[in-house]
Amino acid sequence: MLERTPALAALLDGTDDRLIVTGLGSAANDVAYITDFAPRAFTMDGVMGAAASLGLGVALAQPAREVLVVTGDGELLMNIGTLATIALQNPQNLGIVVLDNGLYGLTGGQTTATATVADLETVARGLGIRRTLTVRSDDELTAAHELIATPGDTAVIVVKVAPGPAAAVRIDRDGSRLRSNFRSYVLSEVGR
């Protein structure tokens, strides 16, 4: 099984201009670590279920920029209907990466539905997402890297990862600062 932080690092390799929105918890830690706390990454540590809709708003506002949502299975499941909302808009610059470890990491490792009965790629397809992929191996990781590098319909990539800790970093929890830094980056010339 893939390890979460190296797998995500491989997926994000060479995408230094991409805007990133993360769900709370491990996804936020991993992204902050991999991007070295870059202002182009909006890392949440609350508001479970908001990452995908936040990413949609950014993608629609910045059609010329690539936008990536990085989240976990529990976070996405909390508002899974958002995938239908996104599929209806089908922004051509949006990718959603789900680090699927089948458990709620922040609350003690209780299992989510994906540990047994639920399959997120099937759900994403069923809700209208046109490009989907489940990643279980390094080869599939390479294919996923290619998929998000290719502009087109909104893509959902489910990366099956082993349970295990996220990168041990302390993310910035000052929401106003994160908002202001991200927006300034987007609207500055550097960010274009």
Partner: peptide, 9 residues
């Protein structure tokens, strides 16, 4: 979430 994302963008 969308309104917040719009502002970020």
């Amino acid at each position: 979430g969308i309104v917040a994302g719009a502002h970020l963008g």
